[in-house]
């Protein structure tokens, strides 16, 4: 589904990704771990199409198509979703209205009619119940005055509504208490199937106890320095990241 080939990317004149190779197949859950500043969030942004980053070599391929000239919204229409570490506040636009706009824009791009209002309401009800989201929450302005946990839960709600093929979760666990973490993880698990893939980006392995990855990759200084199964996450938790730095320095 997603193929990243020898990806080099820079922002301004600073090279951040220095040759990443990664492949995600449908039905798989991958985790990318690594210390602060290793390039994890940059990788997520580059996959989602942030223009600030310039790809200098290699590329990102989604369903065998090079995404280089594809705008972020077009990537979303193809089925790529990024859950943000710091979701943006949009005063005056309710969660419900925002979702209507997002869903109908995607449908328009796919040549479909707008979703009928009753169908939309049904979908909203279904997904918000799944994530244990209060109805009142849906009429509030998007992310405005939301707690950290509410923002993350809202990200996963949006993901549930948009039903992406590829979901990238960027530090979704940061700022969550254990109950919120469990709800968010449950939501993700309910959404993952043999037809879609999940890329979990995290600093800690805590989230991986709930969203169990098939593969774990360690990112350091813009490169994947080690890959393995879920046991690698535990090993990292135990030893920290210092040993990796030493290993890669050798």
């Amino acid at each position: 589904m997603l193929k990243i080939k020898d990806l080099h990317a820079k922002v301004e004149d600073k090279e951040i990704l220095k040759g990443i190779n990664l492949e995600l197949k449908a039905g798989e859950v991958h985790a990318i771990m690594g210390p602060n500043g290793s390039g994890k969030s940059t990788l997520a942004s580059v996959i989602a199409g942030k223009e600030e980053f310039e790809i200098t070599k290699g590329g990102v391929f989604f369903e065998n198509e090079d995404l280089e000239d594809t705008a972020p919204e077009e990537r979303a229409h193809k089925g790529i979703f990024l859950s943000f570490q710091y979701p943006v506040e949009i005063p005056g636009v309710s969660v419900t209205n925002f979702m209507k706009t997002a869903i109908n824009e995607s449908r328009k791009a796919r040549g479909m009619e707008e979703m009928p209002a009753n169908e939309m309401l049904k979908l909203i009800r279904e997904k918000s119940e799944m994530l244990d989201i209060d109805r009142k929450f849906l009429s509030r302005s998007l992310n405005e005055g939301f707690s950290g946990g509410e923002k993350k839960r809202n990200e996963i709600f949006q993901m549930a509504m948009l039903e992406p093929k590829l979901a990238i979760l960027d530090e979704t666990d940061s700022g969550l208490d254990i109950d919120a973490l469990r709800i968010v993880a449950n939501g993700v698990n309910k959404l993952s199937s043999k037809d879609n893939a999940v890329l979990v980006i995290t600093h800690y392995q805590r989230l991986l106890e709930y969203i169990v990855p098939d593969f774990v990759h360690v990112l350091h200084d813009g490169k994947i320095v080690k890959s393995g199964d879920k046991a690698l996450a535990l090993e990292l938790e135990e030893k920290g990241y210092d040993w990796l730095k030493q290993e890669s320095a050798v």
């Binding site: 199409g49 705008a71 972020p72 919204e73 979303a76 790529i80 943006v88 997002a102 949006q158």
Partner: peptide, 15 residues
């Protein structure tokens, strides 16, 4: 805010 713009685009909303 460019970050806010990117956020909305990733939800499928054109620029």
């Amino acid at each position: 805010d460019e970050d806010a713009l990117f956020y909305l685009q990733t939800r499928g909303i054109p620029k």
